[in-house]
């Protein structure tokens, strides 16, 4: 911050239709397999479990039969004005690359967890122990993503390695790696979702569907009023869902607020 936010020609983003998500968890499993997350034996200790992508259950708070449920998959929001980046003492996490994906460089992280304290989405996870796989399972690990040791923080990277691969494929084919057609690069969760609830693409590219969806009247972003400018958009035709994405005082209309924004030290 201190200084203008970097602007990018490409802005990778998601539009997740919450009316289409049924909470099955295929995205979460696909994410783990893609990004080398180790399974955990006691997954009921939810505050210790690592999920780069986590599906939250939302309730409209009304009793049966007026009750309504929505599921909200939460990847890293890749904020335009991230809370985590300026606080990192060792320049581990940055938003400095075309595409606007917030990087996390595991070999440099020394595990102070200040970024986790800063992230209101709880999108950052700490390796409390060295990852452990059942015998032989480590042979299924993907070569695209480095395995993290204990003591470092990790988070969703929008499957950044897939972008690197897509760019290389374009280069070898003689195409412009910075003008990928829609679908040439999508995240593992986008690809997996059987309901097609996730749309992924370049928010700045009018040829990509997300560009249009981000401007939908049903679109909203999580905690938008805090001013973090996330690159993940959610869609819902249900007002209570849109309202639940942001804190609203009772007298406020849905979606009406002035984003706060950081802009302090750091």
């Amino acid at each position: 911050m201190s200084g203008a936010q970097q602007s990018f020609k490409i802005l990778w983003g998601m539009a997740i239709d919450l009316d289409k998500c049924t909470g099955c968890g295929a995205c979460m499993v696909a994410c783990q397999a893609e990004n080398n997350l180790a399974p955990e034996k006691d997954a009921s200790k939810k505050q210790r479990v690592m999920n780069w992508l986590k599906v939250f259950e939302l309730s409209n708070g009304k009793p049966f039969p007026d009750h309504d449920t929505a599921y909200l998959p939460r990847p890293c929001q890749q904020c335009g004005n991230p809370a985590c980046v300026p606080v990192c003492p060792a320049t581990v996490t940055k938003k400095d690359e075309e595409g606007g994906i917030i990087s996390q460089v595991y070999p440099r992280c020394f595990g102070c967890r200040y970024c986790m304290a800063a992230c209101p989405y709880k999108a950052r996870y700490f390796n409390w122990y060295d990852p452990e796989w059942p015998q032989g399972w480590d042979k299924t690990l993907s070569p695209d993503v480095s395995v993290r040791p204990r003591g470092v923080v990790e988070k969703c990277t929008f499957c950044h390695h897939r972008w690197m691969k897509a760019k290389d494929k374009a280069r070898v084919a003689g195409n412009d790696p910075y003008d990928l057609p829609e679908g040439a690069y999508v995240t593992s969760c986008t690809e997996a979702c059987p309901n097609g609830a996730i749309v992924f693409g370049d928010l700045n590219n009018p040829k990509h569907l997300v560009h249009k969806l981000a401007h939908s009247e049903y679109a909203f972003r999580l905690l938008e009023r805090l001013g973090m400018d996330p690159q993940v958009y959610y869609l819902s035709r249900r007002e209570w869902v849109r309202r639940l994405g942001n804190h609203h005082l009772e007298n406020e209309k849905t979606g009406e607020f002035t984003p706060l924004g950081g802009g302090h030290h750091g």
Binding site: D96, E97, E98, S103, V105, Y106, P107, D144, H160, H161
Partner: peptide, 11 residues
Amino acid sequence: ANNNACFTCHK
């Protein structure tokens, strides 16, 4: 412009 970004080389 961004070829010295962290994620250019790290995974």
